[in-house]
């Protein structure tokens, strides 16, 4: 032992640590307290999340159990309406047909419904927080480290309390995805608003705009391209998280991937993985094309 210490005293050699007894004590107190608390309020939580649960189930039902051709046409129409590009629309058509061909239609629809809800929730939460961060430097300083934690903390870690509180199912899955997918929305909303041309903001002030008028007339419209990037990133994050979310009971492509890992089903894993990639690319291209279309008039068109 002493040899690896280069002759240093123990205090400088081995990192100082809590005694294992006090660590055990802390663990027991926190875990026990948490368990008791959850046991106490779990009926309340169940009641509170019931509507959400019903909404998630309903949407999944609508996606997965409607005749495929209707869902297909709706998706293709959305892709075209957003991108106005035949290339992207054709890509979407081929991706969806290929997914159906290999028998993953149902699972893909389950995943799509989950991603849709999670993206909407992430935007609803992220947009106002991003606006708040853009308005106040103090708020930004407070929010940014929290976002760092949300993005780097391994999702399995926060899944533990989420599962303890909400049990297994779609709701904890959704929470896990939202925690992961909201930060880019907040960051890019903040960035987009802060990057709005100072002179245009000053012009708005000089004409006597209220904060609300400034937000709706100037800041949000001018940061729209960045906001669209935020939504795009949120969708991508949500798609990548559905595999992890499947560990707490979310169905769809993620669950298949999880099974494939457990059973070493090579083909099944890859097919499901590629199905995820295909819808990710379709979403990404369509939403980016939409964002670019929105800022068309800001491009210089003369000389």
């Amino acid at each position: 032992m002493a040899s690896s210490c280069w002759g240093l005293p123990t205090l400088l050699c081995e990192a100082p640590e809590l005694s294992s007894r006090s660590l055990r004590e802390i663990r027991r107190t926190v875990d026990g307290g948490f368990r008791d608390l959850v046991r106490e309020i779990s009926p309340l939580i169940d009641a509170a999340t019931a509507p959400l649960q019903r909404f998630l189930n309903g949407l999944e039902d609508a996606f997965a159990n409607s005749p495929w051709i209707i869902v297909f046409l709706v998706l293709v129409t959305i892709a075209y309406a957003a991108s106005r590009s035949w290339r992207i629309t054709l890509g979407t058509v081929l991706a969806l047909l290929a997914i159906g061909w290999v028998g993953l239609w149902q699972d893909t629809m389950v995943t799509l419904s989950m991603v849709t809800v999670c993206t909407i929730v992430a935007v609803i939460i992220g947009l106002p927080i991003g606006i708040l961060a853009a308005r106040s430097n103090r708020a930004e300083k407070l929010i940014m480290p929290i976002l760092d934690v949300m993005q780097t903390l391994p999702s399995f870690v926060y899944l533990i309390p989420v599962v303890v509180i909400f049990g297994i199912g779609k709701v904890p899955g959704m929470i896990a995805v939202v925690i992961y997918a909201t930060p880019p929305m907040i960051r890019l909303t903040n960035l987009g608003i802060r990057l709005v041309d100072k002179e245009v903001i000053e012009a708005a002030d000089a004409f006597g705009s209220s904060e609300r008028q400034k937000l709706w007339n100037v800041q949000l419209p001018l940061s729209l391209p960045t906001l669209m990037t935020g939504i795009n990133q949120t969708i991508m994050m949500a798609l990548s998280m559905v595999v992890v979310a499947s560990m707490v009971g979310v169905g769809g492509l993620g669950k298949n991937v999880l099974q494939a890992i457990n059973n070493q089903f090579f083909t099944m894993g890859f097919l499901n993985g590629f199905a995820l990639v295909a819808i990710a690319i379709a979403f990404d291209r369509a939403s980016q094309a939409f964002g670019q279309r929105l800022q068309k008039h800001t491009e210089v068109q003369h000389d």
């Binding site: 002179e199 000053e202 012009a203 000089a206 006597g208 705009s209 209220s210 419209p221 001018l222």
Partner: peptide, 21 residues
């Protein structure tokens, strides 16, 4: 101040400060 700016003053800017949208 807001009321004052709305009715008593108007401003023109070096880089125009127009809303591109």
């Amino acid at each position: 101040l807001r009321t004052f700016r709305r009715h008593k003053t108007a401003m023109v800017f070096q880089k125009f400060g127009l809303l591109p949208h």
